[in-house]
Amino acid sequence: MESRKVNNLTVFIPSKDFSISCKFYEDLGFQKTVSNGNAFRYEIDGFGFWLQDYYVKEWAENCMLCLYVENIQSWYERIKQLNLPENYAGLAKVYSEPHQEHGSLIMNLGDPSGVLWHIYQGA
């Protein structure tokens, strides 16, 4: 019988200004684990994505990721401390504070390139 076990699945996301996007994700707590020329692998708690030095406006503004966390309030407090509007010249922003939506706690965050993050509490 053929094994079809998956060990990982990852995504590549765009960055309009690669250095600003790198700083943003590092400020959030992601760690750069691999560098591959024009892309860096960022991880947190064993989960991650590839950040590319590549940008297409329509792609960035339609790219969405979901991050499931144990304690959304802790994430929100950390994000508030980053003062995104000031420290990222209005490029990164919190679209919504933690709130109930469809039975889950969720908040929404935009990265400096327009990528939308849905941060959920739970699995």
Results as ranks from 00 to 15, higher is better:
F12N: 14
I13S: 03
K16S: 15
K16E: 15
D17P: 06
D17T: 11
S19T: 06
K23M: 06
F24E: 05
Y25Q: 01
D27A: 08
D27H: 08
L28Y: 08
L28N: 04
G29D: 09
G29R: 08
F30I: 05
Q31K: 11
Q31Y: 03
Q31H: 08
K32W: 02
N36Y: 14
G37K: 15
G37S: 13
N38G: 04
N38L: 13
A39H: 04
Y42R: 04
I44S: 10
D45N: 15
F47G: 01
F47T: 05
G48S: 06
G48Y: 09
F49L: 05
F49M: 03
Q52P: 00
Q52C: 05
D53H: 09
Y54C: 06
Y55G: 00
Y55F: 15
V56G: 01
K57T: 02
K57E: 14
E58N: 13
W59L: 14
W59T: 11
W59G: 01
E61Q: 10
N62Y: 07
C63N: 13
M64H: 09
L65T: 02
L67T: 11
L67D: 06
Y68C: 10
V69T: 09
Q73M: 06
Q73T: 04
S74I: 11
W75P: 02
Y76F: 14
E77N: 09
E77C: 04
R78Q: 15
R78D: 11
I79T: 01
K80V: 12
L82Y: 04
L82V: 02
E86W: 02
E86G: 01
N87W: 12
G90D: 02
G90C: 02
L91K: 14
L91G: 01
A92I: 07
K93F: 07
V94L: 09
V94H: 05
V94Y: 06
V94K: 08
S96N: 08
E97G: 01
P98N: 07
P98I: 05
P98S: 05
H99S: 12
H99I: 14
E101N: 07
H102D: 14
H102W: 11
H102C: 10
G103P: 00
G103T: 00
S104E: 12
S104H: 11
L105S: 10
M107T: 00
M107H: 01
M107V: 00
N108F: 15
L109P: 00
L109A: 06
L109C: 03
G110L: 14
D111I: 04
P112H: 02
S113W: 08
S113G: 10
V115P: 00
Y120M: 04
Q121P: 03
A123Q: 07
